[in-house]
Design a protein around this nucleic acid. Structure first.
Lengths: 269, 269
DNA sequence: GCAAAAGTGTTTCGTTTACACCCATGC
DNA sequence: GCATGGGTGTAAACGAAACACTTTTGC
């Protein structure tokens, strides 16, 4: 948070008209095979010290909002993501008790393999969506809006795949959709609909692919196994007993692009 | 623009960290019975002096983004609207050549009867979507994104009705949907789909209702006729020959609310 | 009276939904 | 061997799309 400016702390910035401070926040969703999780951080400073909050922080002058949100996310939680989606600005006058602060809000979807434990992430923790504590600022509202947007977006974009590993089974995918949308699907109909999009490839055996993670500029390679060993999904890793059973699939991005063209950019469920 | 602060021009505002300036912009769509229009203003100041732009301006410290956008819209175009919809933040570092400025963007739909001519609106003008000139800043991009959002939203919300008068005929409504979505519908199927939503009421004869307009705090009443006489839709008012033919309908907001509940908040077309 | 647009029902087709049994795996 | 979850096809219902002729209005 604001680390870039620690060497300038004595410097002052003066403007003719008052300006709100601008922050970015990023709601990160994860999936443990059973329910949706959200990644929160415990605030170390006032206001709302000790309270849980959506990761985020002040926008730097040399980055756009997306870059700012990704940077803050990496700093505060250790998560290195590529795709986040803006879903709204939060601009009520009194939303920060100290100062006028507006926030540009994003949501993101994290695979298990994106989770990097330890160090920076010491104060970051996953919460089931029904166990979320009272959040700082207007972050309750922000979380609700993010969930709503996620529900809407998943009808038209295969964003759900970002929440699963590189390979997944059809029941896993179905459980994910059911968790996000809060409804139950008939297994056979779900299979059919998914398969007839043509964006899924059947995989004969688990490929144990290479995953990338590390800091923004220095990427390291390591096997999925090492990632899992180093950073098991925090709670209920016994849920893994629900996984790795049945036919494996993988998401075919190329065919998805083609699919989008043909179907007027709609993928419905 | 910034009028609230004209008495403080000598005052300076100092912060420990640099802050972007925050503006709001509002893309206003109108409909002349044939094609979609967008309301633009000609800039009187640098940068982009003389260039057309989406109405907007700096956010005041005592208003949220929605209030700021509505205020700027009223100041710059004379339009007093109630509902605008945020569709994104524009935050690229170099989007304003002078300073770091981020903008929160809205779109709005204006009925003919919302158009208030003269005075403030001297430099505001409607453009057909194919006649839009090169716009200031990143406003081309902003306009494209607004159109895209409008297209998406109209599938699920009856926002189209805001573009028509209090009463309208079915062909008018159909032309509007066709203009927004860029497709052609079968007349009979369109009738059926609209009527089976139950959100339209048939009106026997034109009710000549009372309309409200004026400044934010001092509302005046006048008849629709006087409004039309004073402020005909700028271009092609001969398009009115396409109107007032056939059965009149009006939008039933109450039934729409009920409809939303029953249909899981979806209104598809 | 002629041209242009409004009004109206039915059939066809495709999509969505509902539904049941066998198989593989883990305990 | 029993319980749990995975895998598969078909029939019925529903909603979307295609389609033509008569009536009204404006010139």
């Amino acid at each position: 948070m604001r680390q870039i400016y620690t060497t300038m702390e004595e410097q002052q910035y003066t403007y003719k008209y008052p300006r709100p401070a601008v922050t970015t926040d990023c709601v990160v969703f994860g999936f443990d095979g059973r329910e949706l999780k959200v990644l929160l951080i415990e605030r170390g400073n006032e206001p709302y010290k000790g309270c849980w909050a959506i990761p985020g922080g002040f926008l730097n002058m040399d980055e756009n909002a997306t870059q700012g949100a990704l940077r803050e996310l990496a700093e505060e939680t250790g998560l290195i993501l590529e795709h986040i989606k803006e879903f709204g600005a939060f601009t009520e006058v009194g939303r920060d008790p100290r100062d006028r602060v507006i926030s540009i809000a994003f949501y993101a979807l994290a695979k298990k393999s994106d989770v990097k434990g330890g160090d920076d992430a010491a104060k970051a923790q996953w919460f089931g969506l029904n166990e979320v504590p009272r959040l700082a600022f207007d972050h309750d509202q922000m979380l609700r809006k993010a969930m709503q947007k996620l529900k809407e977006d998943i009808h038209f974009e295969p964003i759900g795949f970002d929440l699963l590993g590189d390979t997944f089974t059809m029941p896993e995918l179905q459980r994910l959709y059911e968790a996000i949308l809060g409804v139950q699907f008939d297994r056979r109909n779900f299979y059919k609909k998914m398969m007839q999009t043509g964006i899924l490839d059947e995989v004969d055996e688990e490929p144990r692919p290479i995953a990338f993670f590390g800091s923004h500029h220095e990427m390291r390679k390591m096997s999925i196994d090492a990632l899992f060993d180093a950073n098991p999904f925090p709670s209920r890793s016994d849920d893994d007993s629900r996984r790795r059973k049945g036919t494996l699939f993988t998401f075919n991005k190329q065919r998805y692009e083609k699919f989008k063209e043909e179907h007027n950019f709609r993928l419905e469920f």
